[in-house]
């Protein structure tokens, strides 16, 4: 048999990932105002949180509304391990991620037997419990006022706003690279197979339960990284991290950016975090216009902004395949 003449569907390149990171690295050089840098840090923080959710729901099809709980737990653990146990920031980072991984594993074992809205309700309940504990266990969590996160230091001195920004960018870069690797590899294919048809995936040798658990743990760890990003940015962790507005922002971002797309979480974060700033000019109409924007997205762009672009690429790939087919046909006719 001859070598296949049809091109394999092109594996998308990693290039756009580096473009996003390069833009991210240039931001402090271009925007000098502290306000914009803080805004950029918030964009990365939400992007990290949403990339975890994108893998879990957009790709593996498991809806967890408890992501803000893991976001909050990561931030609290990072702060507490430093304050109460005196761990260094780097060790506290590893420790808090390990802690969240264990918690999500324990949550996932019983909950992942549930599907669709049952899973959504159960994970939402977990978020409410976590928020309740953060609010009420005042002796340990500091209640409403929360706990202070020690400022990052380098050689004994606080690293300043730009230093914090690059730390956040570094953490976001790791998550972005992982997110992209998963989506473009066979693992992303396996996750989507589970989302589309568990029985068929199982028949093809995919260990569905194990896959689901792994994705849940990974997305929770990503949420924890986002929580730590928030902690080192705002230097304080309080119960507002696992309140409903975080969940609403998360859902808005993934819908606007595009669920199950490569860059939906980043594009969505830029819009959802930046849009209210742009809209402040509209004064009292701000919220109404914001809501109208979301409706327009839902109606006209069901795959979000990122879906719009990625679908163009898909069409191009299809055309390439079709062209190759035609060339093959012409070749055959010429030979005969």
């Amino acid at each position: 048999m001859s070598k296949p003449t049809l091109p394999a569907a092109p594996t998308p390149t990693i290039l756009p990932v580096f473009v996003f990171l390069a833009i991210g690295a240039l931001i402090p050089l271009v925007l000098e105002s502290g306000f914009y840098i803080r805004l950029a840090m918030l964009v990365w923080t939400y992007a990290v949180l949403c990339m975890g959710f994108n893998l879990l729901y957009g790709f593996a099809g498991q809806i967890s509304l408890g992501q803000p709980a893991f976001y909050s737990l990561g931030a609290y653990a990072y702060a507490m391990l430093q304050i109460k146990l005196g761990w260094s920031p780097a060790v506290a980072l590893g420790g808090s991620l390990a802690f969240v991984a264990v918690v999500s594993l324990l949550i996932g074992l019983p909950l992942l037997r549930l599907r669709t809205h049952y899973l959504a309700m159960a994970t939402l309940a977990f978020m409410l419990v976590e928020n309740g504990v953060a609010n009420r266990w005042i002796d340990f969590t500091g209640g409403q006022s929360g706990v202070e996160v020690p400022a990052l230091k380098w050689a004994g001195e606080e690293i300043g706003r730009t230093g914090i920004y690059y730390t956040v960018l570094g953490l976001a870069a790791v998550v972005l690279l992982l997110h992209d690797f998963l989506i473009r590899s066979h693992l992303g294919r396996g996750m989507q197979a589970i989302r589309d048809d568990e029985t068929a995936a199982q028949a093809l040798g995919v260990r569905v339960d194990l896959y689901k658990l792994r994705v849940l743990v990974l997305s929770s760890v990503m949420a924890a990284i986002a929580g730590i990003c928030f902690g080192i940015t705002s230097l304080r962790v309080d119960p507002s991290l696992s309140e409903f507005h975080v969940l609403v922002s998360l859902l808005t971002i993934v819908v606007m950016g595009g669920l199950g797309t490569r860059f939906g979480p980043i594009i969505g974060s830029v819009i959802v975090v930046a849009l209210p700033q742009v809209l402040t000019g509209f004064g009292r109409f701000e919220t109404a216009i914001y809501g109208a924007c979301i409706l327009v997205f839902l109606i006209f762009l069901p795959h979000g902004l990122s879906g719009l672009v990625e679908r163009k690429f898909q069409w191009r790939a299809d055309r390439a395949t079709a062209d190759a087919k035609r060339r093959k046909q012409v070749l055959k006719e010429e030979v005969s």
Binding site: S185, H186, L187, A200, L204
Partner: peptide
């Protein structure tokens, strides 16, 4: 029971899934 979110080619590739390394760390 094909995977509706995957292309035709990706569906066939799923038949080869057990031959790929299993899990994130093994793959990395």
């Amino acid at each position: 029971r094909l995977f509706r979110g995957l292309s035709v080619l990706d569906n066939v590739l799923m038949g080869l899934q057990p031959k790929f390394p299993d899990g994130l760390f093994a793959s990395l």
